[in-house]
Every structure is written in structure tokens, then in C-alpha cells.
Design a protein around this nucleic acid. Structure first.
Lengths: 104, 104
DNA sequence: CGTCCAATTCGAGTTTTATCGAACTATCTT
DNA sequence: AAGATAGTTCGATAAAACTCGAATTGGACG
């Protein structure tokens, strides 16, 4: 039965700037975020980062719990996207500027 | 005579975005940065943060080493300022947006 | 059902970070 | 030179974070 996953992600009002910045302060996670930003939607498995899946999963967890990334199940993979609307509403310009700077 | 201090601070080209974000990901340091942003120049002693001086000093060190803050000696106190020019040059909009969001 | 596939969870090991008090350095003042 | 003030450095401790392999969950499909 498709029980909708309990991927806990903070509500928009719960977003906390230091937590978001911490999530983005790791180079691996920054790379993940940049790839999602470029592609729009990326499954967890689509990152060719030389690293065990458990470690990658940890980084996705941090990104999710900080509210940077939203993940939804589709078949048997997780599709990740950036929560740009929520982030821009709460912290206008911050994530956009970071992505732009990181992409240079 | 004011001997030029040996406070090591990274050159503009050495600024590293994840390091900057990490520096800003601590609530205490964020508070420090916001106060400097408001006042322009603030001595280390001017922060009424209920915390030992050694701990505060640690946070200033992190801010300095990440390149967020510049400190110069003036008499027997250290005056702190934000390295906005360098930061904006390397990471346009990032720190500005963070300060604006943090000030809300 | 059994198997494959995607991703998470668990447990452990290592590293980094935050915090604090005590001792120290540098500068100014008298 | 002595004392006061502003910050830093040191050493220790505790909490948090990153990494990894092994075991596990959830869904798709024959």
C-alpha cells in the first residue's frame, strides 16, 4: 500500500536561517544543491559522487531537515527539488545568490 | 606606534563560500555579524553577549578566518568590520541577503 | 511470493566544533 | 615600572558532524 512517506521536512514558518546556512556549508551538499538547481528535479541516485550511498543519504537528510530540499517518492526512487519558493519567501535572495555564486 | 597586527585573514581570492556559510551558520556569530552590519564598526568588547570572553574570541576567530570580518587594532581594542567589498566581489549578493534576512 | 532496486537506518569510529577557566600578550595610563 | 583594560591562547571537556559498512525498509515486477 502506498503509505505516503513520512519524510519530515520543516514547514515554511519553521525554516531557520542558521540551519539553512549550515546545510549549505558542506561542499558535498553544495554540489548536490547546485545539481538540483541546474536540473530542477534529481533523483538521489543520479549523483555520481564517489561516496557510499549511506553517506549521501546522510547529506540528503541534512538538506531536507534544514528545508533546503524537498523529496517526494516516485516509484521506487526519491525525486529531489529545491524549496525555492519557501526559501525566497523567508530569506529573500539568500539561496538564489548562493546558487549563483556557487555556480561560477 | 601602531604596529600592524598579524591577524591572519584570507585574501579576497582565498575566500571560500562553504567556509563563509559555515561561519554564518552559528547563531552567536550571526548576531555578531548583524551588530557589525548595523553599526559599521564594533569593538570586540561592545557585544553584550552573556558568554566568556574566550568563547567570544573563538567566534571572532572563526569570522576572521572565514573572511567575513576584518579586525584592526586601535589603541588597545580591536575594531571589527565586515569585508563587504571582498565578499560582494566574490559572492555577489550572498552576505547582503543574509544580513537583510537576519535583520528581519 | 521472491527478487531486484532505491534509499534509509543503525552502530561505530574519527574529526570538528563549541564552551569554559586560567594564563598570557599587547596597549594605554599613571 | 606598575596597574588596568582588551583580547588571545592554551588545555580540557562535551556535543555535534562526517564517514562508512552492514542490515533494513518500501516499492516495482516477474
Amino acid at each position: 500500500m502506498t503509505k505516503c512517506s513520512e519524510i519530515r521536512q520543516p514547514l515554511r514558518e519553521e525554516l531557520f536561517l542558521p540551519r539553512v546556512l549550515h546545510a549549505l556549508s558542506d561542499p558535498v551538499r553544495m554540489e548536490i544543491v547546485l545539481k538540483i538547481a541546474r536540473a530542477g528535479q534529481v533523483a538521489c541516485g543520479a549523483f555520481d559522487i564517489p561516496m557510499p550511498k549511506s553517506t549521501l543519504s546522510h547529506h540528503f537528510k541534512v538538506l531536507r531537515e534544514s528545508g533546503v530540499v524537498a523529496s517526494r517518492r516516485e516509484g521506487n526512487e526519491l525525486i529531489n527539488s529545491l524549496r525555492l519558493e519557501d526559501l525566497e519567501t523567508r530569506f529573500p535572495g539568500v539561496v538564489q545568490a548562493i546558487i549563483a555564486a556557487g555556480s561560477r
